[in-house]
Amino acid sequence: MINKVNNPADKNAIVLEVKNLSYSYPGFSDPAVFDINFRLKSKTINMIIGPNGSGKSTLLKVILGILEGEKVITFFNQGKEISFNDAHIGYVPQKRNIDTTIPITVNEFLTLTQKSCKRCFSDAEAEIIDVLQKVNVVEYRYRKLGDLSGGQFQRVILARALLHNPKILILDEPEAGIDINAERFFYEVLQDLVGKEGVTALIATHEMEVVRQYADQVLCLNKTLICTGTAKEILTQKTFEKLYGVHTKPYDHVHIIHQHDHKGGHH
């Protein structure tokens, strides 16, 4: 179960260490990501930023084991090394790859996950209510997935990830396709989980405002890690030129991304 004891000693404990991670897609000689090394501290929010095609999703999928790359990934629990299965990783995928025309209720969606999940702790109904309460969508339990708004849907996907009782949550552009209020609410829920449930989050994002507000550690990725640091250290002109090319200011970028998102028809 989740360790709710607030031991100041494990505040800075490492929960995940990635060493020499590389991945090439089959049939491509150039690696999608290479030589990546970083650590995640317990109960922190870590954000990966980088231009499109910089390998953010690939990196997350290699950590999750969905893609099999070269890597040394070590998971820790209170200083002790643990296996991938014991690490209980929750995942919120990037795009909504679930067909929302399928008639399935939120409850059925989560029950189906629970019943297929070897790593979930219980299959009790109480657990479903619990995860839905944590993300504030419990009143939609018997709604069809397709009838939810973008923000509600995204929180249901987050609830699904919580069924693993995760120590580490991996989120791939969770704000894609939801409006600014839903986005803010999503990150508040997430911040709550980190604070109260002792979760460590690793998030790929394009939203610099979100990075500025919520990130404890920022990882800049463009095939390999270009820089790591706090939001304050990273969101500077210099690192932005390095990451996105010249003439892009940190907040110009925010602007550009927003324009792109509106034109791109994400809503």
């Binding site: 999750l64 969905i66 067909d99 189906l112 019943k115």
Partner: peptide, 19 residues
């Protein structure tokens, strides 16, 4: 039926669940 439906619905997540 549950694992088959799960795999049909979301292949990637089914992989992650260890199916």
């Amino acid at each position: 039926i549950n694992p088959i439906l799960m795999t049909s619905l979301d292949e990637e997540y089914a992989t992650l669940l260890g199916l």
